[in-house]
């Protein structure tokens, strides 16, 4: 057995070991139901912002408190609070991914990170390229 082969084998074994340990640390997307069941774990939940409910960020009261309601993929709606400012263009996000935990007592989800998926550039463009034929009112060709 040559030295380089031994080193190679050790490296491959170590690589496999570490990759398996990494895989074990990957998480799953879950839902609010699972977050309620396991309040001690961190959950990642994909959902949609509920535009019918209040989206509150008021720096005059607390510049580090932001709250809204999200409907997860199974249709369950929960209040979410996050200790940060409101992300730009939050209302226009198509999809929200939350990372955080459920606070069972207060019945709300406490997120430490919010990721947004914004509408793609082309849909966006259709909304922004508003046009105007008469010099009066502005029409937009918004599409979904």
């Amino acid at each position: 057995m040559k030295t380089s082969n031994i080193i190679g084998l050790i490296a491959i074994a170590a690589a496999i070991g570490i990759l398996i340990s990494m895989t074990a640390n990957f998480s799953q997307y879950t839902n609010f139901e699972a977050a309620i069941q396991q309040p001690d774990n961190t959950h990642q939940i994909v959902g949609k912002l509920s535009l019918d409910d209040p989206i509150i960020y008021n720096p005059e009261i607390d510049p580090n408190s932001f709250s809204f309601f999200m409907i997860d993929e199974d249709g369950l709606k929960k209040k979410v609070i996050c200790q940060r400012d409101k992300p730009q263009d939050f209302e226009r996000s198509e999809q929200v991914v939350l990372k955080g935990r459920m606070d069972i007592k207060k019945d709300l989800f406490v997120a430490h990170e919010i990721q947004l998926k914004c509408p793609s550039k082309y849909q966006d463009e259709a909304i922004q390229k508003g046009y105007d034929t008469s010099g009066g009112s502005k029409n937009t060709t918004a599409e979904k």
């Binding site: 580090n64 408190s65 200790q83 940060r84 955080g100 935990r101 406490v110 430490h112």
Partner: peptide, 21 residues
């Protein structure tokens, strides 16, 4: 003064409380 979430997030909350008016 603003620490309402500290308990719920524990160690994950390092980066919060960073805005001031």
């Amino acid at each position: 003064k603003f620490n309402e979430l500290d308990g719920a997030l524990g160690g994950l909350n390092k980066q919060s409380n960073k805005n001031i008016r």
